[in-house]
C-alpha cells in the first residue's frame, strides 16, 4: 500500500481495488448496527488541515476518522492563503510537534499535499483532500465505489465526464483512477475547458454531449462556475447549459441502466436540472454516504498498520 494518498495516478489497480473492497466492508460493518464505531484507530490522531473551506469534505473525513475511533483535530488554516505561503511549512512543523499520525489536507495550491508529504517537514501520512486544480483522490474513489455498486466491475464500462475539466481536480483524479480500473472514460466539454494536451490522456474527447449519451453507463456532471464566463471560457451560462447541461431531454437518451453522478455542490439549472438531479437514477446523495466508507478505508489502510520502523524490523527478521 502507498504511504501517502496524493494522487490516484499513484494507485496500482491492486491498491485501488483494495481500497474499494475495504470500503465495501466498512459499509457492511457500519450500516444498521448498534455501535457504528470501530476501535481500529484508537490512539491515532488525524488532523483535518483545511486551507480552503469545504464543509462537506471535512465533515466526511471527520466522520470517517471518528468511526474508526481516531482523535480528530480540525485545523482550519483559512486566511493563511497562498499570499502567505510559508504558513504551509510552519503549519506542518506545528502538526508534527503535536504528534499527528495522519494529515488530511485541502489547499488551493496544486501540489500542496505533495509538498507536505515529500518536504520532510512532517512524518505523518498525508491524504490529499483536494489540491488546487490537481487532484482529489478520495472523491474519485467514492465515485468509482458508487459506480461499482450500481454497475459491477468497471472494466469496459463507459463513463462520461462532462464540464469544466481544465479546472477540475475531480476530473483529473477520476480519469487516472477509472482508466486504471479498466473503464473507458469520455471527456465532454467546450474546447476552452479542456487542458492542452488532453489528447494524450487515456480518454476519448468529445465536444458534443448528445453524441455520447446513447452508450454511456454513467454520466458525471462537473460543477461549472458561472464566473468562468468572465474569462471567456464560454459566452453565457445559458449557452453553456444548452450545449453541455444535463436536462430531461438528454437524460432520456441515456440507457435505462445508466446512472448520474455529481461531486457537488451542484449548480442546479447550470450543468444539471433539478428533475435530473432528483431522479431515481441520480446517485448524488449516495455519493455522500459512500464518501465516508471510502475515507474510512483509506484511513484504515494508511494508519492502522505498523509504522515503517516496525515493518522494516519484521522484514529484517523474516
Amino acid at each position: 500500500m502507498i504511504r501517502h494518498l496524493l494522487s490516484t495516478a499513484d494507485l496500482s489497480r491492486a491498491d485501488a481495488l483494495l481500497i474499494l473492497d475495504t470500503a465495501e466492508e466498512m459499509a457492511r460493518l457500519t450500516a444498521g448496527r448498534s455501535v457504528k464505531k470501530l476501535p481500529t484507530l484508537r490512539g491515532r490522531t488525524v488532523v483535518n488541515l483545511f486551507f480552503e473551506d469545504s464543509t462537506r469534505t471535512r465533515t466526511s473525513f471527520e466522520v470517517a476518522a471518528k468511526r474508526l475511533s481516531a482523535d480528530v483535530v480540525n485545523f482550519s488554516a483559512k486566511g493563511s492563503s497562498v499570499s502567505k505561503g510559508e504558513s504551509l511549512k510552519d503549519t506542518a512543523l506545528t502538526l508534527a510537534a503535536m504528534g499527528a499520525d495522519g494529515v488530511v489536507v485541502r489547499h488551493a495550491a496544486s501540489g500542496a499535499a505533495y509538498r507536505l508529504a515529500t518536504s520532510g517537514w512532517i512524518d505523518a501520512r498525508v491524504l490529499n483532500a483536494g489540491d488546487g486544480t490537481h487532484e482529489h483522490p478520495t472523491q474519485a474513489l467514492l465515485d468509482a465505489f458508487t459506480i461499482r455498486r450500481h454497475l459491477g466491475p468497471l472494466d469496459g464500462r463507459r463513463i462520461v465526464i462532462v464540464g469544466d475539466v481544465i479546472h477540475s481536480r475531480v476530473a483529473r483524479s477520476n480519469v487516472a483512477l477509472l482508466s486504471t480500473l479498466g473503464a473507458d472514460v469520455v471527456l465532454v466539454a467546450p474546447p476552452t475547458l479542456l487542458p492542452l494536451g488532453v489528447e494524450q490522456w487515456p480518454v476519448e474527447v468529445a465536444y458534443d454531449l448528445d453524441g455520447v449519451l446513447a452508450d454511456a453507463d454513467a454520466v458525471m456532471m462537473l460543477r461549472v462556475q458561472r464566473e468562468r464566463m468572465n474569462a471567456a471560457f464560454f459566452p453565457s451560462a445559458r449557452e453553456y447549459s444548452r450545449r453541455y447541461g444535463l436536462d430531461v431531454r438528454r437524460f432520456a437518451r441515456l440507457p435505462e441502466s445508466a446512472i448520474v453522478l455529481h461531486p457537488g455542490p451542484m449548480n442546479r439549472g447550470m450543468e444539471i436540472t433539478a428533475d435530473v438531479a432528483d431522479s431515481p437514477r441520480s446517485v448524488i446523495v449516495e455519493q455522500v454516504s459512500n464518501g465516508v466508507y471510502v475515507r474510512m478505508a483509506a484511513l484504515y489502510l494508511m494508519l492502522a498498520g505498523a509504522d515503517d520502523d516496525v515493518m522494516s524490523a519484521q522484514e529484517g527478521a523474516a
Binding site: 500500500m1 483494495l18 473492497d21 475495504t22 466492508e25 466498512m26 457492511r28 460493518l29 448496527r33 470501530l38 476501535p39 481500529t40 474508526l68 484504515y300 489502510l301 494508511m302 494508519l303 492502522a304 498498520g305 505498523a306 509504522d307 516496525v310 515493518m311 519484521q314
Partner: peptide, 19 residues
C-alpha cells in the same frame, strides 16, 4: 479491526463480516 497487534504489521485487507 479489533486486533491488538494491528500496529505490528502493515495494514491487512479486511475479510467479510456477515451477520
Amino acid at each position: 479491526m479489533y486486533r491488538d497487534d494491528l500496529r505490528l504489521r502493515p495494514a491487512r485487507a479486511l475479510e467479510r463480516t456477515d451477520i
